[in-house]
Design a protein around this nucleic acid. Structure first.
Lengths: 189, 189, 189, 189
DNA sequence: GATGAATGAGAGTTCATTCAT
DNA sequence: TATGAATGAACTCTCATTCAT
């Protein structure tokens, strides 16, 4: 009984991100979402207050999931180089393998009017805290947090959505980017 | 007969980007756009074939404008440091001063289903050519073009949309970012 | 959930033929139809895929109904005179008592662009078969099917829509027509 | 100067009947008509008061033309058989060769709401007068005028719009119909 | 909890018509 | 006279949401 509910909600979430990737926000009507999820439109309103709340909730959930997935790869005794390499590499493959989720988060977070309805989230705060901590431990250079964040995560997003011709080229490109960013961000001794 | 009124088309374009910034793609209906532009809904269809074509045309126009605006700052005898500083700084202030246009371009280009309707554009090709040329002249390090592009333009976008508390802090943050990227990209001698 | 309401679909059908009689195809907009049927415009689209499909479906349904209503009056042991008299008389009064339906069918079937969207229907085939059969049994003269059809059904339609001053005159006019057509079509012995 | 005007109006008339044949009344908007006629929408309003008046005027003109074309074939010393044969044959080929005009007249005259805006016309009165005259001269049987009219003109319309496989078959079918109607209507001596 | 029917509001678009040239 | 631009009204259709079962 409990299980069935969760599966329905999962279907809805999948349908949302899938549809938005394929047809854009415009094309993701409640009826289409319901049809794609294999439920009735009315059922959607059992799990979510309304459409805006649905998008917002799904956004927040996926955002938290994504960040905590990224942070899972870290362990206390890693070197700075390892931390950077792991974060970037993990993010890169997450994007590749979860196109719909990534696309949904990006589109949503890029829209002020949607963002404004979201409360504070845990994940982004954890990320900022991580960066601050790494600076405190003299692992990262003492750059402005916004700059750190921007250099660490923007370029990898940028290349992850541009496929190369071969997998090997993609791999080399990623390694090169990791090397560059390590050289910038890691505290010179 | 009346002549087609360029002023009117400008109003429509302004209304589109303004509305999409304030209310998102969802909120930018043709009627709202027309009202904001001070014309009748039917008038929109004199200047654009349909709504999709309107968004696409405006996107392509603003994209070309933006890139050619960026490239205008370059002159043949600049050093690598100057080129990077100028490009990033110019882009940064362009974003700050043209929030609506930047936001519109980002939202549009981030949506595959919209992008797919666009033909090839000149601006992006010019940018790629510039990077290739700078590598050939041994001004930039010989990194993968995608990486060069990602490092040069993604971080500045990321920070430009996060306002600081004071203008001075913003200015320092930008200078820091420029310094970092110069150090990464400029050919070590 | 509610069950689909046959009553509602009947209301829509009535509204369609009524409105088209009163205001022509031009005046029969979906909103007017919905209002006349006492439902919301959106409800129409639950029962029909779109406006064209609605008109087509209703046309086909009424056409089949009409023809099968006509053929109901026939029984195996009738003479040729009786068959002709019954068919014409029945058709005449059907038209008089179902003006809207008849008018709708005529207007629709007279428009090639509408007709072309219809698949083959049963009724017309049954009619042709009837005529062929009656010729085979040497009840009707061996005229071309098109001519038989034209003489049997066109004149009665023509007079049915022209009201006379008194009912008696109408009745005499109809009897006269029946007599004429019997004399033409019935196999001389 | 004068000639050019008349040609424009002719273009409009042609465009109207052509478009209505191809796309139905629904598809014949003023803009489409104007485009098909090679003029501006505004120009239409120089020649006609509004759209309804345009359709009505064109209908009346074509109706008069058609009837007077039919009557032209008659001459005082023709026999009854010749009169009937000529009228039917001429009508038949007129329909074949002027599909658009015939279709337009039929659709228009079949719609009460359109008909009601028309004043009395000369042609139909002439036709009725002809029939009355032929009865007076004991050429036609003394049937009710509506019946005479119905038998003389409805069947030929019915077959004229159903093409046969070969021209010869069409010709035979027409001859047969003419024969039948002659036998019905011509005063037995 | 789950559903398909039902809906008012609003979407994109075209209409018949007029205006300014 | 003739035009293409311009428009408010109306079009077809879909939306997010609720209702009755």
């Amino acid at each position: 009984m409990r299980k069935k509910d969760d599966e329905k909600q999962k279907c809805i979430k999948n349908a949302v991100v899938q549809l938005i990737l394929e047809e854009g926000f415009q094309g993701a009507s409640v009826s289409k979402i319901a049809k794609a999820a294999g439920v009735s439109p009315a059922t959607v309103y059992i799990y979510y207050e309304n459409k805006d709340a649905m998008l917002r909730d799904i956004y927040q959930e996926y955002t938290e999931d994504t960040i905590s997935y990224l942070l899972q790869c870290l362990s206390p005794n890693m070197t700075g180089d390892e931390i950077i390499a792991e974060l970037i590499r993990r993010y890169y493959y997450f994007i590749i393998e979860n196109k719909e989720i990534f696309h949904f988060i990006e589109q949503f977070s890029g829209c002020p009017v949607l963002q404004s309805s979201c409360g504070v989230m845990r994940g982004p705060a954890d990320l900022t805290q991580l960066l601050t901590e790494l600076k405190r431990r003299q692992i990262l250079n003492n750059y402005n947090n916004d700059n750190l964040y921007a250099i660490l995560f923007s370029p990898v997003k940028s290349i992850a959505v541009k496929p190369c011709e071969t997998e090997q080229m993609e791999s080399e490109r990623l390694d090169e980017l990791i090397g560059i960013i390590q050289r910038i961000l890691i505290k010179d001794i």
